[in-house]
Nucleic acid binder design. Structure first.
Lengths: 357, 357
DNA sequence: GTTGGCACTCTTGCTTTGCGAGTGCTAATA
DNA sequence: TATTAGCACTCGCAAAGCAAGAGTGCCAAC
């Protein structure tokens, strides 16, 4: 069912104002400031209907109106003004992003931190879950008691570990193991590495010192670590900036839920989705702890046809527009760095596609 | 100046009770519950003197007494009952610690997390600052455009990085570089790797493709990363459990200070100190943000004659005794794992040495 | 030096009260 | 029929007032 154009304008004005001030907004204020061209009485009538329709509610008789989750939904889907960044702002963002992206290793962590900084809400990041394999093995003989395992992974990273042994190994044994692992343990995922395989390798190498199991343990650990989607949370404490979290108990509940890990982000169905931003408003969230918060999620191309997620948590009274724009920008930046994606061309990254849940 | 024995007993009772309840404690309550064997009137006289001496204060006339930082200091130095763990408790702690220590990599992070969990205060960890060098270089030739750099560091860890090149290199060049780096870049600290050294290596290798600079950049980055003392904070949000941080602004201030990094821990002078626990009470802290909080710090043996720090932040009304015991236990566990230290024998790890600041 | 007693102080929580914001309704108007 | 002005009404909120209770300081007696 559609609602009149004027109702939409009024609803948008209410949401905008409420986002700004966190105070219920009244008819008089709208008449004076929203430029709707009608009197407060008219607006009152419209507001009453919007309440009846479920888009707004009043905390109590004779307070102003406050958006319901349904009201936010409508706002996000249809009414919200898309943020446009000026050239300078784009450059500023790019500068910040690039500064973060310098630090190679934990790109996602630092981008999530940046997201939190930019939005002043807590941020979450979920790395893509990619089935990973070992592409190549190297064992570097250091001395009789020491060698280094080097794994080249299918996600194009190299992992290494120094192994110290109580017994001595000779160089030929190291070479034998190296070639055995290269033939038997490459290009298979973690679950293909069975105790059976390990055992047969051990026999083939004539290894009585447990080297085989040390190496395979490292392989298994590395693969599972690389494959598991890791979750990061940053800036939890920014919640305390929001008036709706002035109650320390409430804040604490959500914060400990957040630092418990990012189960917040729906891990499924992020395979396809492209540049769209997903918004989960209040009760749309599955987790009980999030029932009166909102989550905004962007997904990024993590390479290998996989996608990771980056998101923001805040009160339902969230600046959806600004948050969506920023996340979209960051996700594009991540995609560019990690996947085959491209930064959206100048002035285009504001073309957000908001997908209804 | 020393104070009477009874005053000490009263002071201890006040601090204990205040730690427990966070409420100012009155004379009547002490007379009834502290087992001091004298009447409330007597206690009132003593309390008045303790106030005059600066160990206690009253928030306002006719409220109970509250310890001053000086009062806490006295408590920590002389009065506090050392926590003793029963056999079961020791085992429980050991079990938890060992569970954490399984996860190899970020031992310190997980121990700091455990510390926060156990104490219900935010925890900090600072890894030891060790000048690190490369002991050995390996370059693994993967294909014409790809090779892996493997560094064996003086702290007995191996670091690796996959390098992808736009141009092709032949295997002999990789070998040449490998031997050059092994002779020129090993056993020197980061600051010995000058642009001059890099440049001369580049010429010696006849490298026109910038391989030398890629490799040396990785070396420098790895060394500085390994050498820099990293700081971790966990469980900031537990602050919100403390009544003194019910004011969201206050909590927020401290929390963002904390997540800004662990500049909280005095990094210097941790070289020698052994099993002692250091306590910084309120204004004894240098950082403005900590002036009405307390910090408890234990140091652990991180091997190579270096020591790291692990600490707890909380209100001055902190359960010093419990915190000190737990930190001491964890530090001993870390020392055992990382350094040459030993777990204190059964029933001995309660022998805390509290060092005055 | 210790204790019981007592008047005094000051916080805290509760209830009361007045105010103002904002509404809903009605009647007049375009 | 849609809009507007006017007005009475409701309700939350903050200031004010009040009673209770906790704790003190002091004094006189032991």
């Amino acid at each position: 069912m559609s609602i009149s154009d004027r109702k939409k304008r009024i609803l948008a004005a209410v949401v905008d104002e409420y986002i700004r001030t966190a105070e219920p907004v009244g008819s008089k204020h709208l008449a004076e400031n929203a430029g709707l061209g009608c009197s407060s009485a008219t607006i009152r009538n419209e507001l009453a209907e919007l309440v009846a329709l479920g888009y707004l509610e009043q905390p109590h008789t004779s307070a102003g109106r406050v958006p319901t989750p349904m009201g936010y939904r409508m706002y996000v889907n249809e009414l919200m003004q898309k943020q446009k960044y000026s050239l300078e702002e784009t450059e500023e963002l790019n500068r910040k992003l690039n500064a973060k992206l310098q630090e190679l290793d934990d790109t996602i962590v630092s981008v999530s931190r940046l997201a939190s900084q930019l939005t002043d809400y807590p941020a979450l990041a979920l790395t893509a879950a990619v089935p990973t394999t070992v592409k190549r093995f190297d064992l570097i003989y250091v001395d009789a008691n020491t060698f280094i395992i080097v794994l080249l992974l299918s996600n194009n990273s190299a992992k290494s570990k120094l192994v110290h042994l109580p017994v001595s190994v000779d160089q030929t044994m190291v070479q034998k193991l190296s070639s055995l692992f290269n033939s038997g343990f490459t290009n298979v995922t973690e679950d293909a590495i069975t105790p059976l395989l390990i055992h047969s390798t051990e026999r083939a190498a004539d290894d009585s010192m447990g080297l085989t199991s040390v190496i395979s343990a490292f392989v298994i650990e590395t693969l599972s670590e690389a494959a598991a989607p890791a979750a990061f949370v940053s800036g939890e404490n920014r919640l305390l900036n929001q008036p709706e979290f002035r109650d320390p108990d409430k804040a604490h509940r959500l914060m400990s839920y957040l630092s418990g890990g990012g189960y917040v982000l729906p891990t499924g169905e992020n395979a396809q989705g492209s540049d769209e931003i997903r918004v989960l408003i209040g009760p749309e969230n599955v987790a009980e702890e999030l029932k009166d918060s909102s989550v905004v999620i962007a997904s990024y191309d993590a390479g290998d046809n996989t996608r990771g997620l980056i998101g923001i948590v805040g009160p339902t009274r969230m600046d959806y527009s600004a948050v969506a724009a920023k996340l979209s920008f960051l996700a594009a930046g991540l995609s560019k760095r990690l996947g085959g994606g491209e930064m959206p061309p100048e002035g285009m990254h504001n073309k957000l596609v908001i997908k209804e849940q």
